[in-house]
């Protein structure tokens, strides 16, 4: 985490008055946030606060009822998930969603889909361009699988590797889409202490070495406090606080949201 990175305040992702309503329930209300280039921005809050809904709106799984999502100056509100990936936002899921009956390498190769273009005819006629592109896909995937330390499982079906490895595989697949913003939904859930430490180390190295910004939902306070540059707290669909981790840690509103106020 260099000073240079802290001083560049280019906003990568901006949400403006984002609102999502399910039936009578307002899951997210007027959510404003700005995620700056090169930072790790964490979203925390009690269960049902609307964190994952924000993620789903940003990554195009839900269309917001009001508000906008601006990514690198472009309005991507209501775009489809695959279009948003092409803009440069990749995500992982709280409950891992890998492709279980494909090999680990194939899982990661799938991430390169949006950066390649071989169509039906060039595939059927096996053109040289298609071959070159396939080589590029394979090289990128090989690089990413080494990066997450799963190269020995290259040809193993993804469903056969451990839960912790599947999580890293999912992150590698997201990285293979060549994102500018990586959106991680509770990456440490289900991991043991050792795996969580390794994950934190991995994310720190990632942000230091690549031109990347990370948006994170996390329940593990050690992770949040350990790697975040800024933290936003959500409760009942609204952002109730935002700031550096140590500020958030002592904020009475945050303590109230998590533990209830003294009057209760």
């Amino acid at each position: 985490m260099t000073d240079e990175r802290r001083t560049t305040h280019d906003v990568v992702l901006e949400t403006k008055k984002l609102t999502k309503i399910f039936g009578g329930l307002t899951a997210v209300a007027d959510f404003d946030a700005d995620v700056r280039a090169g930072e790790i921005y964490s979203l925390i809050g009690p269960n049902g606060a609307g964190k994952t809904t924000v993620f789903n709106v940003v990554t195009g799984i839900y269309r917001p009822d009001h508000g906008n999502v601006i990514f690198k100056g472009a309005d991507i509100t209501g775009k489809k998930p695959h279009e948003i990936v092409r803009f440069g936002i990749a995500r992982t899921f709280q409950n891992i969603r890998i492709f279980p009956h494909m090999t680990c390498l194939e899982n990661i190769m799938a991430g390169q889909h949006c950066r390649t273009s071989a169509g039906l005819w060039s595939t059927l006629f096996a053109t040289p361009q298609k071959h070159r592109e396939e080589e590029k896909i394979r090289e990128t995937a090989e690089r990413r699988i080494r990066q997450v330390g799963l190269a020995r499982f290259r040809d193993e079906l993804a469903r056969n590797i451990s839960y912790g490895s599947q999580r890293m595989l999912e992150i590698a697949r997201a990285l293979a889409t060549e994102p500018a913003l990586l959106v991680l939904d509770e990456p440490s859930s289900g991991l043991n202490a050792g795996e969580t430490d390794a994950l934190m180390k991995f994310l720190r190295e990632l942000i230091a070495n690549e031109n990347l910004t990370i948006l994170l939902i996390e329940h593990d306070m050690n992770v949040v406090m350990g790697i975040s540059d800024r933290v936003a707290v959500m409760d009942e669909g609204r952002k109730i606080a935002e700031g550096r981790p140590e500020e958030i840690y002592n904020d009475p509103r945050v303590i109230e949201a998590y533990l209830g106020s003294e009057d209760d």
Binding site: P81, F99, H113
Partner: peptide
């Protein structure tokens, strides 16, 4: 990439979409 895209959709449609 076409065959892999097909298989991804078979495996998990939502994840296929968010993988691009």
């Amino acid at each position: 990439r076409i065959g892999r895209a097909w298989n991804c959709i078979r495996e998990d449609e939502v994840a296929a979409g968010t993988t691009g």
